[in-house]
């Protein structure tokens, strides 16, 4: 079976600094894959490389077997890959409802239509309502996104990401800055919403990672030093030394 995401020998340089070196990553379809690593290891950069936000200096990225490195973000998105951002990245002046609805429009085939009334598209309305319900923001539907609380914005961020119904979902630290209770709620949300999909998640909270992930990759200085099941990662001596070890000190 072809992998959902296949990253092969990707390098990314900013100027003459190599931020990502010889990155290899394979995520199987339907797998929940966590990427962990210390701050500045290049996790978000990896997300940017896969989602087309930045282009690799060399190497290639495949989505469901098709080469996508070099494509623009919206082209990659249309092929069924959707990502969230570590720093909340929503449409601040638009309401919660509009935020989610915009994310539904392309996937429901309405594209750049200027001859349809956006308010009378039943499938758009139903899907938007469903997602608002899923992310528990129905009661805040008419509030401009910029006025939401931090935790609500993080949930909206997830809502926008999954709204298109993409089969490959990438979440960059979805629970960052959340309280313990909020994190638990967000994790169960993620678990439910990505059921049957491929999930790549960057997460610092180890209990979340080990509870959620089928496989884990450890990124250190732009290079994946280990990739395996949670059990394998826990036992891996390189990981202990480079990453988990730090926490034990």
């Amino acid at each position: 079976m072809t992998a959902a995401i296949e990253v092969r020998a990707v390098e990314k340089r900013f100027g003459n600094v190599s931020i990502i070196r010889d990155l290899n990553l394979s995520v199987a379809k339907g797998e929940r894959h966590a990427i962990i690593g210390p701050n500045g290891a290049g996790k978000s950069t990896t997300f940017n490389l896969i989602s087309g936000h930045i282009k690799p200096t060399s190497g290639e990225v495949k989505l469901n077997g098709d080469l996508i490195s070099g494509l623009r973000p919206f082209e990659i998105n249309r092929r069924g890959l959707s990502r969230s951002f570590q720093v909340t990245n929503v449409f601040a002046r638009m309401t919660v409802w509009e935020n989610v609805r915009c994310a539904v429009l392309w996937a429901t085939g309405h594209r750049y239509a200027f001859w349809k009334n956006v308010d009378s598209l039943p499938e758009v309305r139903e899907r938007t309502a469903q997602i608002l319900d899923d992310i528990h923001l129905t009661h805040r539907r008419d509030v401009p996104a910029g006025l939401l609380t931090y935790a609500e914005q993080r949930e909206l961020e997830i809502g926008i990401t999954i709204a298109s119904g993409a089969t490959v979902v990438m979440l960059d630290e979805p629970t960052a800055g959340m309280s313990h209770a909020e994190t638990e709620r967000a994790v169960s949300l993620i678990r439910r919403l990505t059921d049957g999909k491929t999930l790549v998640i960057v997460e610092h909270d180890m209990s979340v990672v080990f509870g959620l992930a089928d496989r884990i990759s450890v990124l250190v200085y732009g290079h994946i030093i280990a990739s395996g099941t949670p059990e394998e990662i826990r036992r891996d001596p390189k990981v202990k030394e480079a990453y988990l070890g730090e926490e034990a000190h």
Binding site: R72, F74, N77, V90, F91, M94, C102
Partner: peptide, 18 residues
Amino acid sequence: RICNAVRDNPERVQFIGY
């Protein structure tokens, strides 16, 4: 509606297919 989204955040628009 997408015009408004582009006004608010042209970067994110690219990640919802536009």
